[in-house]
């Protein structure tokens, strides 16, 4: 036989929790109206980076494709020529595709990339209605051109050879004069 307390007080006490909670701060996130930033190192969509002059960092070495545990990356390298240069050095990635329906955003490709060409952004709103749209091509992945960048192909603007780029000894654009300084 339940006691009087159990019969009458406990059910009301339960509402006490409800009542108390009404004065607490709401935990619900108002996504998508208010987007809470992710952790800075959140693994989101990939990005193919550029050098400050707009040349691509990707050299088409395919190490990302080899590191990928899900076989989500396809790369086809090609040789730079004097007339059409896309990256410093000998090779560039001519075809670059990531299949986001396979990619598990684990970041092994980022670790494998020898030139830091491939990094991850914090963008995560990737859902789409078809499989094809979720295979991102090079133009979808490339970082946008920032001020001072130039759409490749163009010659190496920041150094004489790829070694200057990789060692970081390239000339930096002086903002005021626009002249190249060492």
């Amino acid at each position: 036989m339940p006691t009087l307390k159990e019969q009458f007080w406990d059910p009301v006490a339960g509402f006490g929790v409800t009542f108390r909670t009404m004065f607490r701060k709401v935990v619900t996130e108002q996504y998508p109206k208010e987007k809470k930033p992710t952790a800075p190192r959140f693994h989101g969509r990939h990005q193919l980076n550029r050098w400050p002059d707009g040349l691509e960092k990707c050299i088409g070495c395919e190490l990302c494709a080899w590191a990928c545990p899900a076989d989500a990356i396809y790369v086809e390298g090609a040789s730079n020529t004097e007339d059409a240069r896309f990256s410093p050095g000998e090779r560039y990635g001519r075809v670059y595709q990531i299949n986001y329906l396979r990619c598990i955003l684990c970041g092994l490709c980022i670790e494998a990339c020898p030139t830091r060409a491939l990094t991850m952004t914090n963008e995560y709103e990737l859902a789409d209605a078809t499989r094809e749209d979720l295979i991102y091509e090079k133009q979808d992945l490339l970082a946008p051109l920032l001020p001072g960048m130039e759409q490749p192909p163009h010659p190496m603007r920041l150094g004489n050879d790829d070694g200057d780029y990789y060692r970081g000894t390239f000339r930096r654009q002086d903002d005021e004069t626009g002249e190249a300084t060492q």
Partner: peptide, 20 residues
């Protein structure tokens, strides 16, 4: 009708997919 990448997708991604 809707594919949602991610492994696993965070809840925001699911909500985004549902809204799409």
């Amino acid at each position: 009708d809707m594919y949602l990448p991610g492994c696993p997708p965070r809840p925001e991604m699911l909500i985004d997919a549902i809204l799409k």
